[in-house]
């Protein structure tokens, strides 16, 4: 991949420099475009189609139709409009993805901050626990949690969040360790700032870059996991327009109506690819080694 670097970084803030470098990376911009498109489609899904009538209600007269002017992506086995289902699916994937990241980020942040800031015993116990969580493949962990709690969106959310926690905890911990001894932290302490104040106001802003990169990449893998779990029937119930659930239903008729498995699959590939490209691009843009 080409790494053109910004030359005129004068009169620009740090964010400006990062944005400048990100913008020069064509693949990253392509990813950003894909993601923006996904975001827009998810936001205006209810303008483009009607949830009840197009995406959920079964219409036995219009089963398994191939793409036409009336149904631009065709219809599924139950006569539901595939375009409507895919765009409402985008909403589900995005909302679940964002919520998962927010939960695992907040929990990971607290654990990482405690471990890094207090060190010693606390650090040992918390980080060993994180190591063990990381040793279980996330899909297995998610399956175990779904097995225990049962199906449903909230349980799925919980199952997905748990496996994301250790990654964020590690990032926060390591950045706390690097800034802990620095003068500005000492100064803040001398001013009487509380421990929590130091962590949130002085330490976290220093690791926001790696956190955003990790969040983007985690969201890509979360979208994959959601659809995989729904596909095997352990995630979102199949009547809901979720991409994996759609594929699970379409599997039975794919021999005769291949468009029914192609449409949701392409939706997953494009959104995951968009997020991966943004993540990679941000990592390059934030890398101090590539500066100047």
């Amino acid at each position: 991949m080409e790494q053109k670097t910004g030359t005129n970084k004068k009169h620009k803030g740090q964010l400006g420099v990062i944005w400048h470098r990100f913008r020069k990376n064509k693949l990253a911009m392509f990813g950003l475009t894909l993601f923006t498109l996904l975001l827009l489609v998810a936001m205006f899904a209810n303008v483009l189609a009607d949830y009840e009538n197009d995406a959920v209600a079964q219409n036995m007269k219009a089963r398994n139709q191939t793409p036409s002017t009336e149904h631009i992506l065709g219809t599924d086995h139950y006569g539901r409009d595939l375009f409507a289902r895919v765009i409402f699916g985008a909403r589900i994937s995005l909302v679940l993805g964002v919520l998962t990241i927010l939960i695992s980020l907040s929990v990971g942040m607290i654990i990482g901050a405690l471990a890094g800031y207090y060190g010693g015993r606390v650090d040992d116990i918390l980080m060993r626990f994180m190591d063990i969580l990381m040793a279980i493949p996330s899909i297995l962990l998610a399956i175990s949690i779904v097995a225990a709690l049962g199906n449903g969106i909230w349980n799925l959310l919980m199952a997905l969040s748990v496996s994301g926690v250790p990654r964020f905890a590690r990032i926060v911990r390591s950045s706390i360790l690097t800034v802990k001894g620095q003068e500005f932290v000492e100064a803040a302490k001398a001013y009487g700032t509380t421990d929590a104040g130091i962590v949130f106001r002085h330490v976290l802003p220093n690791c926001i870059g790696p956190i955003i990169v990790q969040a983007t990449l985690s969201m890509a893998s979360t979208i994959l996991t959601i659809s995989s779990l729904s596909f095997v029937g352990l995630g979102i119930p199949s009547a809901t327009p979720e991409w994996g659930a759609m594929l699970s239903e379409a599997k039975t008729v794919m021999r005769y109506y291949p468009h029914e498995i192609i449409v949701p699959g392409v939706a997953i590939v494009l959104s995951v690819m968009g997020l991966n490209l943004i993540g990679d691009g941000l990592r390059d843009a934030l890398d101090p080694k590539l500066k100047n």
Binding site: M1, L27, A220, L224, S227, S228, F231, V232, G244, L247, K251, M254, R255, P258, I261, I262, G265, I268, V269, L270, V272, M273, N276, L277
Partner: peptide, 26 residues
């Protein structure tokens, strides 16, 4: 090959399985 790698990381394995099954088996 980098383009291929990019596409391969973004494809859900189970969907690829379905597509392969569709083409090579069905």
């Amino acid at each position: 090959s980098l383009g291929l790698a990019l596409i391969m990381t973004s494809i859900p394995a189970f969907w690829l399985g379905l597509m392969l099954m569709l083409v090579f088996s069905l």
